[in-house]
Amino acid sequence: MISLEGITKSYEVGKEKIDVLKNIDLYVESGEFTAIMGPSGSGKSTLMNIIGCLDKPTKGRYFLDGVDVSEYKEVELARVRNTSIGFVFQQFHLLPRLTALKNVELPMIYKGIGKRERQERAEEALRKMGLEDRMDHLPNALSGGQKQRVAIARAIVNEPKLILADEPTGALDTKTSQSIMELFSRLNDEGTTIIVVTHEPEVAAFARRIIMLRDGEIVTGEQYSGGLG
């Protein structure tokens, strides 16, 4: 499903050129549950942003479902983000003035789905996340775990094949983290490909495969084989 070939991302800071990602090759099959780990600053978020079509690589090719999206223009990338990818962020990134329901409706607005269908599907997604009695709450009136579940509902509402979660449990306690990861597992069981960035081994333990990044390079791409530091 995802095929990265020689992906390099460089930033020019002053006169210096910094390679944040160095010649990354990565293949993710459809239906996989992958965790990306690594020290802070190793390029995990940068890699996720490129996979999520929010960012473009400096060099290399990115095939999503066999299509070379590194050649895509802005509008096409927006469509890919809208329909093929669901994002979940550490800071939840809900719009504060919209209710849970309206937040979940957002991706469908940009997809051009009609009002009635939008509402039905948003309600269904929230129900799936166990939030049937929180639909009309503003984000401020929700706990961290609830916010993240709204964000996941929003990520899945357009039925993307790929969910990208950058430290989704970073702001949550252990127990809530577990329940959030269980939701991801369930989505994975239903066939959605999931990539999670995390620092926590307990979170990574939900994945079937762990990729270690260090200084912009993949160190291991082996099957999960126990605890990591």
């Binding site: 999520g52 929010l54 802005e74 509008v75 927006a78 469509r79 983000r81 809208n82 329909t83 994002f87 990134h93 809900l94 719009l95 957002l106 991706p107 940009y110 997809k111 929003r154 357009n158």
Partner: peptide, 16 residues
């Protein structure tokens, strides 16, 4: 700014 970033991540085009 953040709202704009979120909307873009959710698939809003620059035109939208």
């Amino acid at each position: 700014t953040r709202e704009i970033g979120i909307r873009m991540a959710l698939g809003a085009t620059r035109m939208q």
